[in-house]
Design a binder for these strands. Structure first.
Lengths: 333, 333
DNA sequence: TTGAAAGCGCTAACAC
DNA sequence: GTGTTAGCGCTTTCAA
């Protein structure tokens, strides 16, 4: 077993609470004993036990982050923001990858609560899980919901204005005289992404164009699903002249499908994405897309948790932070 | 405070150790009381306290993962492998992003040990930290080192044969009659990447070509560092006709620099990368590169830890797992 | 300033 | 099968 404060106390000939006080920098010890304790602790290679401390203090300096897919650069960038901000505030992060699986997400929530994290940041895969986490988290555990403002229950949410983001980019296509616009999305159900469909429809209506169901495909959030969805669309009798993809990874799959078939982007079919992942700006890709402040959203999530933990803000209000999307025009649309 | 086994015991009129036995599925309770306990636990919305359990059991079902840069798809894919395998074995993962910063890495190691993780998976930023983590981890805590076999101390390491990987790809360039090959790397010091430089040199020697120092730039592991390094090379009087980049992210930066200057890849200058990140296979990129089994390496790391934890393998041997790299020829070189 | 005692929530060893 | 007791390593009263 490892060295404990009792071992140090024995060696220093003092009581172990004094060692505790000395190590944690609390008042109540002479600077002389403090120095002595610190020296002995170092000599003995003492490693504090955060579990024991957490058990009595009822806080762990630990937070949980649940995201659907760490391979999607959108989420890794958010995760980086969370990680950086947490580190600068002395918090450790449990990373959980739900894989767009609601059950797995649920298990992770239980795991995090069992580990008594001080807060949870969740990018939900379904609206049902938002109520579930609120129920499980109870009145005390702060939760930040990312990517959607659909939080009937009390919690903090951080998201961009998705309707506006989609509208901006579809209007852009329409201004460029594209008229047959497809929507390739992930999965209906979450407000964050449903809002993008709404923005798409809104833009079409603004131009007096009909919403055609055969032009709307919702197939999953990955590169492959974008690839397959585009191929399906191309096999239809009526082809779109432009595509609005619900995220950049889908857009990349769409472009892959087009180029594989020998079609040019945007000359034959234009493509716009959503998120502005780093790859989008690469020469050879040059994806027109809608920028989200991903990294900042991750940092904000931790700040919000932290201010609740510090008692600076009330834990159980329904606080919605809605950020601005920004259209980034490049070459694909 | 939350519901404890004592609360359940009170309600069920039994002792709380019986509740513990019932909940943890251990023998020593009648199936009747077990059912009763389970029912009450559910009613009261009991959430077990993993901290308390860990404190007495001296294990946490928790592991730590320290990587340099979650934004690099190479690392996010490794992280995904770790995460998936950990989840399937009931382990939670602390994610730590060292940002190529040795001090930050050191702090994370302390943090993980304080949280009494059952094992650590480390992609080290410097060889010094390998000895440091071994010293801190002591005799009992298993450590898996990723990306380098440079583990003088006892620990498990998982890596591909980097010399061979680099050699394969440089020989490929040489076979294609490129003769002025630049090496754009990250930072010297870690065997994993130093080995790639060695492979580069080995290939040149094999063809009787000189190793020229002005053709070797080591500048950092990011897109920007690749971009800048290539620009510096282009400003020199003598230009390379091909570039071996130490990883794909650097290679993307290199290509970006070339295209921005109006140079064609590979007609003017060929580029090969290393890692085979998903982006590499994209139409419009088509990067020739060396594939590493990233996801599998992440899974393996957890399996190795797990078998040590299960007592199936000895904790403190120096076990080196060296995997095969694979050259993937696409269009850039 | 220091020490003694209690307790965080749980599991494990031992009686009954 | 069940209860009693002790203790994991630490912080936090409360006395001295």
């Amino acid at each position: 077993m490892s060295v404990t404060i009792k071992d140090i106390a024995k060696k220093a000939n003092i009581s172990y609470p004094s060692v505790s006080r000395a190590l944690s920098g609390k008042p109540g010890v002479s600077s002389k004993t403090r120095e002595k304790v610190l020296k002995i602790a170092k000599e003995m290679n003492y490693q504090p036990n955060a579990l024991a401390r957490s058990l009595v203090q009822n806080r762990t300096a630990t937070i949980g982050l649940i995201i659907p897919d760490i391979l999607n650069p959108y989420f890794s960038e958010t995760a980086k923001g969370v990680e950086d901000e947490a580190h600068s505030r002395g918090l450790s992060v449990f990373l959980c990858n739900s894989d767009w699986d609601g059950d797995r997400e649920g298990k992770y929530i239980d795991q995090l609560i069992a580990n008594r994290v001080d807060g949870i940041i969740l990018f939900p895969t379904s609206p049902a899980n938002i109520s579930e986490i609120r129920r499980k988290a109870g009145r005390k555990l702060p939760v930040v919901i990312l990517g959607t403002t659909q939080t009937e229950d009390v919690s903090i949410s951080i998201s961009i204005d998705n309707v506006l983001g989609a509208e901006l980019s579809v209007v852009h296509l329409l201004n460029k005289k594209y008229r047959k616009l497809a929507f390739i999305g992930g999965k209906p159900g979450l407000s964050g992404v449903d809002d993008r469909l709404e923005g798409y429809k809104k833009a079409l209506e603004k131009f007096g164009l009909p919403v055609e169901n055969e032009m709307i495909v919702e197939n999953g959030f990955t590169f492959e699903s974008g690839y397959n969805a585009m191929n399906d669309l191309l096999d239809q009798s009526r082809r779109p002249d432009a595509v609005f993809a619900e995220n950049d990874v889908i857009a990349m799959g769409v472009i892959q499908a087009l180029r594989t078939r020998g079609l040019r982007v945007p000359e034959d079919i234009a493509v716009v994405g959503f998120d502005d992942i780093p790859m989008a700006s690469m020469a050879g890709i040059d994806l027109t897309t809608v920028r989200q402040p991903k990294y900042e959203m991750g940092k904000m999530a931790v700040s919000e948790l932290h201010s609740v933990l510090q008692g600076e803000s009330v834990p159980n209000v329904n606080k919605r932070l809605v950020l601005e999307p920004k259209l980034i025009i490049r070459k694909t649309g």
